[in-house]
Computed example of a mutant assay.
Amino acid sequence: MFPEDIQTLAEAVIATAAARGLTLATAESCTGGLVAAALTAVPGSSAVLDRGFVTYSNAAKTRLLGVPAELIDRNGAVAQPVAEAMAAGARDDAGVDLAVSVTGIAGPGGGSADKPVGLVHFACASKAGVRHAVHRFGDIGREAVRLASVRVALGLLLDAAEAA
């Protein structure tokens, strides 16, 4: 279902989390659940993946993940503090060891001079804190932005699982 490199990354995340006894959750906006789908494509993923939140709307980010509406109003949904709050909210709500979040502009519309199409913010929350990453993939097409975002999110989870 997924390109081979994504499948390989997802397998590494599941294997590493399982070996370390870690549990995971995802909080996704522009990827629409693709990170969780990549993880659940791996046999044995149910041992580590607790849940995935698809919070496409701002209201869902607030209601399901506890992201303060004022934070979204002040920064917009595609911003570092929102990605961090999404990851922390998913980790807290699910009671898991690690949670990754993705919020961005996949296109083809929706971009601006400050926040162009292809801008994606990520965060990974663990007991050690929250790590943020931002990528500007450019206007490479909606599917390409979403798949590139899955790769980054899985990479963040793998790094966090290896460090745990």
Rank of each mutant, 00 (worst) to 15 (best):
S101T: 07
V13S: 13
A94D: 01
C30H: 11
A47V: 11
G66M: 01
G33Y: 10
S101Q: 04
A60V: 05
A77I: 05
K61C: 00
I72E: 03
L49S: 06
C30S: 11
A59S: 12
S29D: 04
P3A: 01
C30E: 12
G66A: 11
L9S: 02
A37I: 13
L98M: 04
T26P: 05
G33A: 11
E28N: 14
A47M: 06
E70A: 15
Y56A: 00
A19G: 15
L34Q: 14
L65C: 14
Y56N: 06
L71M: 15
L22G: 00
A69D: 05
S46M: 10
L71N: 03
T23P: 10
Q7W: 09
L65P: 09
A85V: 02
C30Q: 09
L39C: 02
Q80W: 09
L98H: 07
A85Q: 08
V100P: 10
T26V: 08
R91T: 06
D93I: 13
A59K: 14
M1L: 15
T40N: 02
S29A: 11
N58P: 06
G33V: 10
A10P: 06
T16I: 11
A27T: 03
V42D: 09
S57N: 13
Y56T: 00
T31K: 10
T62D: 00
I72W: 11
A85L: 10
G66V: 08
A90D: 09
S46W: 08
V100C: 08
P81C: 12
V42A: 08
A99P: 06
L65K: 11
V54D: 08
L98I: 14
A36T: 12
K61W: 07
G32V: 01
D50T: 14
F2Y: 04
E4A: 15
G95S: 01
